[in-house]
Amino acid sequence: MKKTVFFIALLLLTAYSLHAQDLQLTRNGQISFFSSTPVEDIKASNNEVSSVLNTKTGSLQFVVLIKGFQFRKAAMQDHFNRKEYLDSDKFPKSEFKGTVSDISKVNFKKDGTYPVTVEGNLTLHGVSNKIKVPGTITVKAGKISAASKFTIKLADYNITVPAIVSSKIAESVEITVNCNYEPYQPKS
């Protein structure tokens, strides 16, 4: 209950006027990352991404749990969560808060794939950085989805790769985001 009140208050704050039909939510969005070196390819994905998109103002948020990233190998996953890397005990979440700066280009009433630009703050491993990345918003039969692919440098987020494994982990990793939204339907 408290959570809902907080959430609605947050939505009210971010949106100048709250029209329920402007809000698109998902709790099962996907974020995956890919690190490639000649020695080893590392891939992991998380399918429990929470995201809110305001189709009117363009405000966009993502939150994801670090421990929810699943790897092919359990050992990779253990390493990823360790203190030396993502330190998920201390920093359990990563989040993005920003806006689709050219949301007006998207016609939500007409089917199509619209290229957009997303700007905002990405927080990972306790470090926040401003990012500006390309993405697409797809409208299909009234359903809205969003996708983006971009790279981040591990060093920008204070993630230092020990020299002994530096041949296995790339300095930059590719992040892929895919979200299929559902309209927000308040229950009375």
Binding site: F7, E48, S50, L65, G68, K93
Partner: peptide, 8 residues
């Protein structure tokens, strides 16, 4: 794996 808007 933790808590976002829901427990996951």
């Amino acid at each position: 794996t933790g808590f976002l808007t829901d427990v996951v």
